[in-house]
């Protein structure tokens, strides 16, 4: 007999599903992935593959044997974590450490809290920060893009690190820029021809992905744009006050994985606020903390810490940043 199906309304469902959203994030990451394969070659490919595969495998194993639940690896979220973790690693990173980083990302960053949706911190960032603190040398020795490799240099520092080092030695920005080993131009950075983590180098490819995410309504503009604006305003003010000590905002926007972090890591659904108002507060916080760490702290790069810090603030933001009730009288 033909049994009718009964359910409460609504009886139709929109186009979104967790799977589709995650798939769109992966698609949005593809341009940057291609650019990194082009610049960093086989090293980038191996790191990405190892990170993605180990994230998926760890998620499956933990869900199946430790938590004894039905594995949900088919929602692609582990792939996204793996990709973003890999994007934050240098292309010559030891593979065994990639595996360890993935284990930390999935195990400590995600599964201990109950899996997708319950983790307070961005899993990929947990993995990255763990590696950054545990193995700082490997994490900050970046190979140069293939076509920049010369006889005496196969690795180099990121532009941010060069600036930081120079400032520490008492040089002014202009002096640092005139040094021989400073070959960075904004054009290189747009295209991706600079040293750095394998996924963060190409601004254009990352922005292409950002546009895709916006068109597909995967994310809203609120978080990335507020981060960019805050960074511009804060670092711009500093630059205007003393151009010799503080570098210009464009530099900040194009280096240190700013775009990667703002578009793909800060916008992680689980660890970002629920309301648009909250997102703006969250983005502003990330922007301020990043620039504060970069200019006043000892680390050259501060975005990861800023995002993790603001992740911790999200429950608080959610509590106080509620949407306005229709017809509410204040």
């Amino acid at each position: 007999m033909n049994k009718l199906i009964i359910s409460p309304s609504p009886h139709i469902h929109g186009e979104f599903s967790t799977k589709r959203l995650m798939r769109d994030v992966i698609i949005a990451l593809l341009p940057a992935l291609c650019v990194s394969f082009y610049f960093f070659g086989l090293g980038a490919m191996t790191v990405v593959c190892v990170a993605v595969i180990s994230c998926v495998v760890f998620e499956y194993l933990i869900q199946k044997f430790l938590l004894k639940t039905t594995p949900t690896v088919n929602d692609y979220s582990a792939i996204v974590t793996g990709l973003i973790l890999a994007f934050n690693l240098p292309s010559n990173f030891p593979l065994w450490l990639v595996v360890v980083g993935s284990l930390i990302a999935i195990g400590v960053g995600k599964m201990v809290f109950g899996g997708l949706g319950n983790n307070p911190f961005n899993p990929a960032l947990v993995g990255r920060v763990f590696l950054l603190i545990a193995r700082p040398v490997e994490m900050t020795t970046w190979p140069l893009p293939i076509n920049m490799i010369t006889a005496d240099a196969t690795t180099g520092a990121t532009p941010l690190a060069i600036i930081k080092e120079g400032l520490k030695n008492g040089l002014t920005i202009d002096q640092i820029k005139s040094q021989a080993d400073y070959t960075f131009t904004y054009l290189d950075s747009l295209w991706g021809q600079i040293g750095g983590s394998l996924g963060e180098v190409s601004a254009i490819a990352l922005l292409l992905g950002f546009a895709y995410l916006l068109v597909r309504k995967v994310i809203t503009w609120h978080i990335p744009i507020t981060i960019f604006l805050t960074v511009t305003v804060f670092s711009g003010t500093l630059h205007l006050v003393n151009p010799n000590q503080f570098i210009d905002p464009v530099f900040h926007l194009l280096t240190g994985g700013m775009i990667l972090g703002a578009v793909y890591m800060a916008t992680d659904y689980v660890t970002s606020p629920m309301t648009h108002k909250g997102m703006i507060v969250y983005g502003t916080g990330i922007g301020l903390i990043t620039i504060a760490i970069r200019t006043f702290g000892s680390y050259p790069e501060g975005l990861s810490f800023a995002i993790l810090f603001m992740n911790a603030m999200v429950p608080l933001i959610n509590k106080y940043m509620k949407p306005k009730l229709f017809g509410e009288i204040k």
């Binding site: 199906i5 949706g117 606020p273 629920m274 309301t275 306005k324 009730l325």
Partner: peptide, 28 residues
């Protein structure tokens, strides 16, 4: 039709905030 009748399988809330954005009343 039968194909369109069934709701999708339910999974964890990923806190994407799409429901908050869709609510015409401003609820959570």
């Amino acid at each position: 039709t039968k194909e369109e009748s069934k709701r999708g399988t339910k999974s964890n809330c990923i806190r994407c905030s799409k429901c908050v954005a869709a609510c015409p009343i401003g609820l959570l």
